[in-house]
């Protein structure tokens, strides 16, 4: 506990840095997964291909991806962009399946009747399908957010600033409190963001609250 009190500033800056890696990746994977999920859902042939590719992407160990991406993207090894792109890829791997499932959960009768009401394809997507897919999308987003926040820590092995550096440093110095702080702060951060997502979901989709 004394370690925590003596290092509040360090923990704070590591936490902020952690969020600056995780949040852009979470947002990007959500935004990119929507069109991909739509394609997977719309065209039967693409579903298996996209979902298998997403599954395989997830099987790539994170550490090599963090290291190899820089040479592909042309940034330095420690550059934050690499980490964000890598995390976005992992997030996409999880989120594409969720998005496809979410859009599939909107029943065909609903889609057909909104077409009959005169919605264009785009209008129907934003006004009908997306809101109805919301709850399943949110469930997927929550998984992505938790796993992304946890995964950020691996990039500390490359010297990228985030809560994972507390493991690396605590490991070398034998300070268990430091390692434990890193773990608990990561979990707490994940749970807080998760809670915010739930609250945001209730605000944006008030109709789901009644059902619970």
């Amino acid at each position: 506990m004394t370690w925590v009190l003596n290092n509040l500033e360090l923990i704070g800056s590591r936490t902020l840095s952690h969020l600056l890696l995780a949040i852009p990746a979470i947002v990007a994977s959500f935004v990119l997964a929507l069109p991909l999920g739509w394609v997977a859902n719309r065209y039967r042939w693409s579903r298996a291909t996209l979902l298998t590719a997403a599954g395989l992407l997830y099987a790539i160990p994170s550490l090599p991806l963090f290291v190899v991406l820089p040479s592909v993207l042309g940034f330095g090894v420690r550059d934050r962009i690499n980490v964000i792109v890598a995390l976005t890829l992992y997030g996409l791997a999880l989120m594409v399946r969720s998005a496809a499932d979410a859009l599939a959960s909107v029943g065909m009768p609903v889609v057909l009747s909104s077409t009959a009401l005169g919605y264009s394809a785009a209008g129907r997507f934003f006004a009908v399908e997306l809101p109805l897919a919301g709850p399943v999308l949110l469930a997927g987003l929550r998984v992505v957010s938790v796993s992304t926040i946890s995964l950020v820590t691996v990039s500390s092995l490359l010297g990228v600033d985030n809560l994972g550096l507390l493991f690396v440093d605590g490991f070398q110095r034998g300070i268990i409190a430091e390692v434990l702080t890193g773990i608990m702060a990561t979990v707490a951060l994940a749970l807080i963001v998760d809670g915010l997502l739930v609250l945001a979901g209730r605000a944006l989709m008030p109709w789901t609250k009644a059902r619970r």
């Binding site: 500033e9 704070g12 800056s13 590591r14 902020l16 840095s17 600056l20 852009p24 940034f75 330095g76 420690r78 550059d79 934050r80 962009i81 010297g159 990228v160 600033d161």
Partner: peptide
């Protein structure tokens, strides 16, 4: 975004370099 945010937080001396 990272630049803007790190500019606000001078208490983050350990941030790694962005290009």
């Amino acid at each position: 975004g990272v630049l803007a945010l790190s500019a606000c937080s001078s208490s983050n001396p350990l941030g790694s370099a962005s290009p």
